[in-house]
Design a protein around this nucleic acid. Structure first.
Lengths: 329, 329
DNA sequence: GAAAAATATGTCAACGTTATCATGATACAC
DNA sequence: GTGTATCATGATAACGTTGACATATTTTTC
């Protein structure tokens, strides 16, 4: 492998000068720099990351900590990774899908030990994400969470209320009957969606119903069971809490012989992969996970650049309504 | 951060002796070693990976190269990652979802430059995966592919033919009518499934049909359009090439007013996340992606341990039939 | 035209680890 | 008792890079 020493020997200057040239730091005559860079390219020089890290005591690695790698995670991650890699840094993914709880602490210690350039917590499942962030910050590590669930004073937040508002306004324009909201019980972050629903209903002055199915083993089953409730309420349209719940609803309705969209319009939330493949394909409110990932990368790069107040801002990302057959009368 | 030097100072021995103790290499009096390790634990010593890599010229990093991170990939990856991390190595994920083709070569060069302990190619989309493997091997890097698609003389391979055979035998036991196979055109690796279908049909001596829908923009649409073909053939049951294709089929059938499973039994292939959420939930042949990932880790660890012929073996992994409502008469 | 500032290069040491070689011990054989 | 393994430790030098500091040279400033 080619080293700075090799280039120094070839060009007849000191190692330090070569270092300055390839790192674009300090002063080097532009003509000399050009010659050095040319030689470097010729012999295929690439900086030894281990040596650089050892000496400079700073790394070019950004850790992404995940809990479960579902598709929503993947969308965020790939967007983040692409942006970070473009900026010349390394992304290291660490997943924590481990059973015992001590594992989390162990991994976290390992990460702090590596003194990475940054850490992105890409999971809402940290039972104490605030404390973890604090722990990283006191260790002097740039860190960021990407939760998007709860409205926050800082961080990246998807405006779910506005998404639901838009969808319900669309439903109101397409039907004359009663519009329902199918939620899930006991979930705090359901609130933002419900708020959007109420705002839209108040604006159009339409008859409405808020339905909360009893919780079951799986969200899908809850949706299946809830289909009968929708029929009872004689809804013309329904906004469902999530795509997964909506999938259950679609199955339940088909078993009951209720046609979508002929008898009832259905809108989901998330835009999961499967929503496009449902029977019928599901209209849904797309969570812009890729945008969030890219945005997180941007904030991280700002942080690395020393712009510390980038993290204390609140970024609100809008959703997008994706219309498919389930609302297409 | 605590270093070997610190421990040496405390215990009053040389750095090298401490190094020997913590690395369990060379000779150290057992009583002294115990004392050193105790001190190391007390002050929270952890080996500096950068320094170790620089000096020893060998790393503890295993790269995983992916193309697209779909859920099947995620299942393989998480299983692989867990096993490798348990063995004390680092896993670094590099995704190549980049447009320009030169990108692949660039990343590959970067990886080789890092001289990692191993590389796992976790993608079938390398247009020349054999050459890439060769390139890595000549660079002296332990490497492995995890394609699972095509039957190979070496590597890990999912026995798709046997999976389809099992499913069709189940269908034959549940119905008396004609059984169909819905494939996709122009795909070489369709062959293994078709072979399984034919073997089962030959065994039960049942009337059968092999149907290949015209290719469309998306697999899902192709399935939707193919529903009519299934009806024309008056099939009692159908084995579909993939879950995605089957999702289209289910939608097409529902529009045509054909009931699943009352009028026709449907079996997919893959066990994607969405299959459990279809209308009705889809019986499918599960690809054991997690097992494959764990197996790949095992082979990789063998390779690292110097057991070079571990990679030249062929590992065949069986599928598993997951029965859901779409075949539940 | 002298002082100050910017430009341009080099020397040396250090980051924390491991490899090489050297040096004692201690044990065992003949 | 001498020779040869085995056991046990240390001194020193790397690995490739960058930081601190030194030293020229050129340019700018008043």
């Amino acid at each position: 492998m080619a080293t700075l020493k090799d280039i120094a020997k070839i060009t007849g200057v000191s190692i330090k000068t070569v270092s300055r040239a390839v790192n674009n730091s300090g002063y080097v005559r532009s003509e000399l720099k050009a010659r050095i860079l040319q030689e470097a390219g010729r012999i295929g020089y690439a900086s030894n990351r281990a040596a650089r890290k050892l000496r400079s005591q700073e790394s070019d690695e950004i850790y992404v900590v995940s809990w479960d790698m579902d598709e929503l995670f993947v969308r965020k991650f790939t967007a983040f990774e692409e942006e970070i890699r473009k900026a010349g840094y390394q992304v290291i993914l660490v997943s924590m899908h481990e059973k015992d709880s001590g594992y989390k602490e162990k991994i976290l210690k390992q990460i702090i030990l590596e003194k990475p350039l940054g850490v992105l917590l890409l999971t809402g499942r940290f039972n104490n994400i605030g404390a973890t962030l604090q722990q990283l910050r006191t260790a002097g590590i740039n860190c960021l969470q990407l939760d998007t669930q709860t409205p926050q004073t800082e961080g990246i937040y998807i405006d779910r209320g506005a998404g639901v508002y838009d969808a319900v306004m669309m439903l109101a324009a397409r039907t004359l009957g009663k519009i329902g909201y199918l939620g899930i019980s006991n979930r705090e972050h359901d609130w933002t969606r419900l708020e959007g629903f109420r705002r839209a209903i108040a604006e159009v002055g339409r008859e409405a119903a808020e339905i909360f199915p009893p919780s079951m083993d799986s969200i899908y089953e809850a949706g299946f069971a809830a289909a009968a409730m929708l029929v009872e309420h004689r809804l013309a349209a329904v906004q469902v809490y999530s795509d997964l719940l909506a999938m259950g609803v679609l199955y339940g309705l088909s078993v009951l012989g209720v046609k979508v969209p002929d008898d009832i319009l259905v809108v989901g939330f998330d835009d999961r992969d499967y929503s496009a493949y449902a029977s019928p394909p599901l209209t849904t409110i797309r969570q812009p996970n890729d945008e969030c990932g890219a945005l997180a990368a941007k904030v991280m790069l700002e942080l690395i650049a020393g712009n510390m107040d980038a993290v204390s801002k609140c970024y609100v990302v809008p959703t997008r309504l994706v219309e498919r057959a389930s609302t297409n009368i």
